[in-house]
């Protein structure tokens, strides 16, 4: 029997969606309590459960040959992967938001932005020719304009309800963020036949 393909899945909300989707395609797996490595029932896949933001690191170093994660995590990591299959679930957008009465035109100097997505934010605004000052935060970014740390934030927006609750509004969308099946390019080149078969199995109808 050939050895199983290795794949990293992110902990959290996306994991549940991936597990549910895989089940509809006949791939069943579960992690024993506190365990972070599991096999699917057929033992075609060896699955690692990792922190979302660490997933690209495991795939880039070839520890996991494949992974499923959002484009935000891929872009922020700076690593290059094969993006083999986009999924319709888990999609969101990276947006610029701020207090309702803020005006981009009246800012007088570089735009100060609080965000967890420093790389993507810097790249986006520099591509637009807009100088930005970035304050890195690790979570609850919506607080920054409310408490006066920065007038704007860049964050993932799904429904916009958190923004609304904090009296913030979206000024512009920077990127649509899709969830992808990614692969380490060298791993794909060795296992392309098995991976292509796997893609055929998990492709959405």
């Amino acid at each position: 029997m050939s050895s199983p393909l290795t794949i990293a899945l992110p902990k959290g909300r996306l994991y549940d969606r991936v597990q549910k989707h895989f089940e509809t395609k006949g791939i069943f797996f579960e992690f024993e309590k506190r365990k972070l490595v599991a096999y699917d029932r057929e033992e075609n896949l060896k699955i690692y459960l990792v922190k979302n933001s660490d997933l690209p690191t495991y795939v880039a170093h070839g520890i996991a040959g494949m992974g499923i994660c959002g484009e935000d995590v891929i872009l922020e990591s700076g690593h290059h992967f094969h993006k083999l299959l986009p999924f319709s679930f888990g999609g969101t957008s990276l947006s610029l938001a701020g207090l309702k009465d803020f005006s981009m035109e009246d800012r007088g100097g570089p735009l100060t932005i609080a965000t967890s997505y420093t790389e993507m934010t810097r790249r986006y605004f520099h591509d637009q020719g807009i100088p930005v000052k970035i304050i890195k935060l690790n979570g609850s970014v919506e607080l920054a304009p409310v408490l006066g740390l920065a007038p704007c934030i860049v964050d993932l927006v799904e429904t916009g309800s958190t923004l609304k609750a904090n009296n913030l509004e979206v000024f512009q969308k920077l990127h649509d963020i899709k969830v992808h099946l990614i692969a380490n390019p060298a791993y794909y080149k060795i296992h392309y036949k098995a991976i292509n078969k796997f893609i055929g199995q998990i492709r959405e109808d």
């Binding site: 070839g62 060298a186 080149k189 060795i190």
Partner: peptide
Amino acid sequence: FNAYTEGSGTA
């Protein structure tokens, strides 16, 4: 051309 080997994350 590139050569790939199982166990190496790059060519």
